[in-house]
């Protein structure tokens, strides 16, 4: 009887985790700047996986499937928090701002010019490791600036501006992905 109760409690706990957003799962305040978290993200991931990784539940076949889902959810949350773009999207969503990246293409003209320039450089750099690395570095600097700015916008709860900047970040990230594919 006691055992059944425990199991029911465990089930409830596991299902609850599955419904929680990434900030809740990782027990950090919903903020773009992760510096405020008490434990580094990676350490927290390890702590959580030590509890919920399916490898630690091999003797419990009845709960294995559910544990796999929980462990998967934790990994997905980690990824969502680690990546600044998805972290920003999540924060926006939590504050009632929905951004559909697929539909948002209206960008300031200056930004689009910059993008075109990047694409041209990328064409030239194809298969050239040095050029690609240089391009990657440039892009990374740009992203860094945007990320810093996003941090302060979220701190000031200026979500509309943050949303605009997040769009830019999504362009940069697509570009970074393209660059990484160009390496020989």
């Amino acid at each position: 009887m006691n055992k059944e109760n425990e199991l029911a409690k465990l089930h409830k706990k596991l299902y609850k985790i599955l419904t929680e957003d990434a900030f809740t799962v990782f027990e950090i305040p919903p903020n773009f700047d992760l510096m405020s978290a008490s434990t580094p993200l990676n350490n927290k991931l390890h702590e959580l996986q030590k509890k919920f990784h399916p490898d630690n539940w091999t003797s419990n076949p009845s709960i294995y499937g559910l544990i796999t889902r929980v462990s998967s959810h934790i990994n997905s949350c980690y990824q969502e928090l680690k990546n600044p773009l998805s972290r920003s999207l999540l924060l926006l969503k939590l504050n009632g701002f929905h951004l559909d990246l697929a539909k948002n293409t209206q960008m300031p003209q200056a930004f689009l010019f910059e993008q075109m320039e990047f694409h041209e450089l990328l064409d030239e750099a194809a298969n050239d490791c040095d050029k690609l690395e240089q391009l990657e570095q440039n892009l990374e600097n740009k992203q860094k600036t945007v990320i810093e700015e996003l941090g302060s916008l979220f701190n000031q709860k200026q979500f509309e501006q943050a949303l605009e900047l997040t769009k830019q970040l999504s362009f940069y990230q697509k570009l970074a992905d393209l660059i990484s594919r160009q390496y020989p």
Binding site: L45, S72, Q79
Partner: peptide
């Protein structure tokens, strides 16, 4: 799901 994602993972 991008490569090098820690598994198990779901999306």
């Amino acid at each position: 799901i991008p490569r090098n994602s820690t598994i198990p993972i779901s999306k």
